[in-house]
Nucleic acid binder design. Sequence first.
RNA 1: UGGGAUAUCGCCAAGCGGUAAGGCACCGGGUUUUGAUCUCGGCAUUCAGAGGUUCAAAUCCUCUUAUCCCAACCA
Length: 551
Amino acid sequence: MTQGGTTPTNFIRNIIDQDLKSGKHQSIHTRFPPEPNGYLHIGHAKAICLNFGLANDYPNGHCNLRFDDTNPLKEDADYVVAIKEDISWLGFKWHGNIHYSSDYFDKLYNYAVELIKNNKAYICELNTQQTREYRGTLTQAGKDSPFRNRPISENLALFAKMRAGEFEDGAMMLRAKIDMASPNIKMRDPVIYRIRFAHHHQTGDKWCIYPMYDFTHCISDAIEEITHSLCTLEFEDHRPLYDWVLANISINAKPRQIEYSRLNLQYTITSKRKLSALIDEGIVTAWDDPRMPTISGMRRRGYPAASLREFSKRIGVTKQENTVELASLEACVRENLEENSPRAMAVLDPIKVIISNYNENKNEQLTAPCHPKDEHMGTRILPFSGEIYIDRADFRETANKKYKRLVLNKEVRLRNAYVIKANEFKADENGNITEVYCTYDDQTLGKNPSDGRKVKGVIHWVDATKNSAAEFRVYNHLFLLDNPAAANDIQDVINPDSQVIKHGFVEMSLGDALPEKVYQFEREGYFCADNKDSSSDSLVFNRTIALRASM
RNA sequence: UGGGAUAUCGCCAAGCGGUAAGGCACCGGGUUUUGAUCUCGGCAUUCAGAGGUUCAAAUCCUCUUAUCCCAACCA
C-alpha cells in the first residue's frame, strides 16, 4: 500500500454514512478533547487522525479542539501550548477558535441549578470514605445517601454557598439523583460538582467549585453541536450517564458518543501518568526525549508527521482490544523516509584508512546523487583526499565469503568513489585496529574495473580532512519487554541501552543540517540533527530508525 | 445470574446470508556502487467452541468458553 490514498472504512464511518443518508445530520462535527495534564502520545495521534480525519473527509465536516480542563489540580497552561503545537505539526487544523470546557463554567453551573430545581441533583455531605461505602460494590447495590432527599430550596442555597466559597474543600458535593441500585455503578448518583480551592490556568480564581468530567463533557459537546463524540472503550459505561445528563437539562443538541478501542503499541507505554514518571525518575530527559512515544518525542527523533498519519490509517478503528507490533509503525516511518530523505554518509565508529598510492596534492571533489532514484533531489560534493574514515565494523583481517566489506588483501567499493584494496593495517596494544593502508584503482570512479574483476562489497566513508565531527545518539527500545505495562516495576524492564552515544564524522555537506530534517546515512540508518542539542559548532544526530537489516 | 464490551492468519483488519480483501511480519527467486530500495512468488477448505435454521452461514438463532472495562469529590 502506498502512503496517502483514501482511508479504509470502519464502523464509525459506517455509522456516519447512515446518519448522513437518513438525514439525521447534514454534516458532521467532531472534537478532539485533550486534558492539558501532559503531552500527547501515539495513542492521541490515533485519536487526532480519527477525529480530524473524519472532519476532513466528509463534506462540510468540522473538528473542534477543546481542552477538557475541569481539574485545575492536574493541569497546566504549558501543556496547552505543547498540545496545540503537536496537533499542528501532525498536520491538522481545528475548526474556529480553540475551546475550553472552562469556557462553559457559567453555563454548566446554570445547568446544575436546573437539575437541582427539577429534583435531579442534591448536595451530599458524605465524606470520601462514606461515599464509597454507600456506593455498594460490583455485585451489591448501593444505598441512598442520607442527604438524598434534602429539599430543593436547601440544595439551591447550599450550592450557591458552595460557589461562594463558604465551605471547605471536600466538605460537600453536588450529586446527580439517579439510582443507587443501578447495576451500572456510574449511574449510582455520580458526583457532578466538587469544591476545589485551586487556581485554574484559564479562569484564575473565579471558581472554587469545578464540574466533573461526566457532567461537563456531554454538555460541552452539545453546546458545540458535536454530532459524533468519539472516545475510548473504557467510557462505554459512561454513555448512559452522558445521555442522562443531556436528557435532563434544557438543551436541544443530542450528540452521540461512540467508543473505539485505544491503541496499544509493543514496547511502549501510553499512560500519561507513567510517562510522567519516566521523566521524574530521570529515565528519560523530558516529554520530548526521542525515546518517548510522545508526538514531540517522535518529532524530535525524526518520525515524519505523514508516517504517523499513515500508521493511524493502517491500524484502523474497531472495538477490539489490540496491541500493534512496533514493526508496523516502523514500516510506515521507513517507507516515508526511503522516498523523502536525502542520502549522505557518516561514520559512527571511525578507523582511518590511508590510501598510499593517492597523490597527496590531489584533492578531488567527487559528485554524488542525493537520492538513488529521485534526481530532483540533486547532487552534493564529496571531498576526497588520500585519507578517509570508514566504520570499524567494515574492515576485517580475515572473513568468510558472506562478509561483503573490506578484508585484508581484498578489494571493496567506496560508495560514490573508487575501489580500494587493503594491504596492511596497524593495531594498538589491545589489538584494536587503528589504521588500514590501502591502494586505490583510479580507473574505477563511476565504473567497474575494466578487466572484469568483481568487487563484491560497497562501504561508506567520510573524508578525513574535510568533514564535520558529530555525536550520534543511537536509540533502541526504551523497554526490554514488548508489554512493559505488565511489569511489576517499570524500573526492572528499562533497556539500559535505549540510548547509545557514539562519536564520529559526517560528510562536509551536513555541516549545516537543519534540526528534524532526516537524512539517510547510507548503510547506517536514518538520522536527523537534534532540535535541542545540535548546532553547527557541535553536531548531534539522532538515529530516527535503522535500515531494515537482512543477512 | 452485578453491568458493559470483544472474539476472522504471528500482529492489525475488511467482510453485514451467496461460498475468506488488504497491510505489517515471515519464507523463497531476481535486480542493485546502500547486506537498503525495487521486483516476482508463497503465506486462513477456514472465521473462539458446540449445536441449530437455510439450497447456501464468518455473517441469523441457542448454549458454552476466553479476554477486556467499571466500585477517584481523575479524565
